[in-house]
Design a protein around this nucleic acid. Structure first.
Length: 491
DNA sequence: TGAAATGTTGGGGCG
DNA sequence: ACGCCCCAACATTTC
């Protein structure tokens, strides 16, 4: 067939399997031009951070290799997305651009601008879902409103039936020949080489589709059956660690959902773990739905009374938190894991976030910004929804008075201090449970463990009991205003 | 997908 | 045998 080529524009769908845009283009029979465009200005204030860019570099390398194995080349371009698509289409005589839908506010704007400018140039556009199990339009309350509470949305999603089954990667792809010219991956300048901070990243992660599938299958066989308990244990390999793979679309939620079901059917007593895992996929879904309907979620508290919250912008406290030097071992362990590996265990994210927002009274937006820069799985929807959840300002959020006690949480979820010993080595010789509150340890125990508080490890930067009192007082202040405000924003 | 304060219950020591 | 107190264990409520 000598039809005009189709451009498959890759975004956060960096996979060949279960990629509807790619599958449709391949099925069309036209030659394919796979392209990724590095558009540094597109996301505006939410340009990806260093950790995300490291992952993107690795993921593009992986996708490029997968495409090369099939006889093609992933075309890399830089610059304004619309300009680049137009230029590429003209160079290659392409008839259409196929792509996967994205949901970030800036991406929605881009997609709406794309239509007139490309179709005006005679280039057809085809947009496909697939980043989510269900498109936001498919899930509404009986009243026709978007869901603001998780549980009803979960039930509504289940009531719609099983999400569609994932489709396999195409057996073969006919690529346009000759391939259009491409930038080298290095030219995208995604890697920061000066301080090689990503060393630990390389050992820990395998970005790309095949790495994602390996990680999923390992999780399903080794951890899913115990997931509902072990997912809260940062000292155990209890979580899937799929978040960055999902964010970049190296694996689809559909693939996770269906493979989990299949795996659970073959395991005794895996039902509970299965359901917990599926529910986590739907928490991701819930965050995306919120972001779609409330695009200012990353900037503005969902509950308007929180606009009046008396935050304290204390740069020194924020910095101590970022560096993992708060004097609370479970918080510091988490923040150091994040810095070293680009990832933090979910339970510890909640503890560390609660500490920043409630014990230090630092605005949740500051914590969100730090996570945005340092997480390899930084995701606008999940990050915004989760920070607002912890702060108590979000939709279906934790009640404001739910203030985590970092000592209790540490004892409960890292009972032997294994996680703390890994990331806060200066405390490694303290016995559990004292390792969770070194300031209460007898002087002799501290000396024998080689710990000198305030020197080898910080004294607590705030007293938790006092901090809790301050947080409750601050929340009481805005509670008084609540009656004046509408209880919920309109979508 | 909390923690702390407050309330209740019941066993056991003791006069 | 009985009442009283203490207090751990558990339940409820409050933040």
């Amino acid at each position: 067939m000598t039809s005009k080529p189709i451009i498959v524009w890759f975004r956060n769908d960096l996979r060949l399997g279960d990629n509807r845009a790619l599958a449709a283009a391949t099925a069309n029979g036209a030659p394919i031009i796979p392209v990724f465009i590095h558009d540094v200005a597109a996301a505006k204030a939410w340009a990806p951070g260093g950790a995300s860019n490291w992952w993107l570099h690795m993921s593009l390398a992986s996708l490029g290799a997968d495409i090369a194995r099939m006889g093609g080349r992933l075309i890399l371009r830089r610059g304004d997305t619309i300009d680049q698509l137009k230029v590429l289409a003209r160079e290659a005589g392409a008839a259409a651009v196929y792509f996967t839908r994205a949901y970030e506010p800036w991406a929605k704007v881009l997609e709406s601008r794309l239509k007139p400018s490309l179709e005006g140039a005679g280039i057809a556009l085809k947009r496909y879902g697939g980043a989510l199990l269900r498109e936001p339009e498919e899930l509404r309350t009986k009243a026709g409103d978007p869901f603001k509470v998780y549980s009803p949305m979960w039930r509504a999603l289940v009531a719609l039936g099983e999400p569609r089954a994932p489709s396999p990667a195409p057996d073969r792809i006919a690529f346009a020949k000759p391939a259009p010219k491409s930038d080298e991956l290095e030219a995208l300048a995604l890697l920061q080489t000066k301080p090689d901070w990503a060393r630990a990243f390389r050992d820990r992660w395998s970005p790309g589709e095949s790495g994602a599938l390996v990680k999923l299958d390992r999780f399903l066989s080794d951890a899913m059956a115990r997931y509902s308990d072990d997912r809260n244990r940062p000292d155990l390999p209890g979580t899937s660690r799929l978040s960055p793979h999902l964010h970049f679309g190296e694996i689809s939620a559909h693939t996770c959902w269906h493979r989990a079901r299949v795996a659970a059917a073959m395991q005794p007593k895996a039902e509970k773990g299965l359901e917990t895992f599926l529910k986590e996929l739907v928490w991701r879904e819930f965050s995306y739905h919120l972001l779609v309907h409330w695009p200012d979620l990353p900037e503005v508290p969902f509950r308007p009374e929180f606009n009046a919250f008396p935050w304290s912008e204390d740069a020194a406290l924020l910095k101590a938190w970022q560096r993992g030097r708060t004097g609370y071992p479970i918080v510091d362990a988490g923040m150091r894991e994040l810095w070293a590996t680009g990832w933090m265990h979910n339970r510890v994210r909640m503890i560390a976030a609660s500490f920043l927002v409630k014990d230090l009274l630092v605005p949740w937006q500051d914590g969100q910004a730090w996570f945005w820069d340092t997480l390899v799985d930084a995701d606008l929807a999940s990050n915004a929804a989760s920070w607002q959840w912890v702060a108590g300002s979000g939709a279906d959020a934790a009640p404001y008075f739910r203030i985590f006690n970092p000592v209790t949480q540490g004892v409960k979820f890292d009972p032997d201090g294994v996680y703390i010993r890994q990331w806060v080595p200066e405390l490694a010789r303290l016995p559990a449970p004292l390792i969770h509150e070194p300031w209460t340890a007898p002087a002799l125990v501290l000396r024998q463990a080689g710990v000198e508080l305030g020197k080898t490890y910080p004294s607590p930067i705030v007293d938790h009991a006092e901090a809790r009192g301050r947080a409750l007082a601050a929340f009481a202040e805005i509670k008084a205003n609540k009656a004046d405000e509408p209880s919920h924003r309109r979508p």
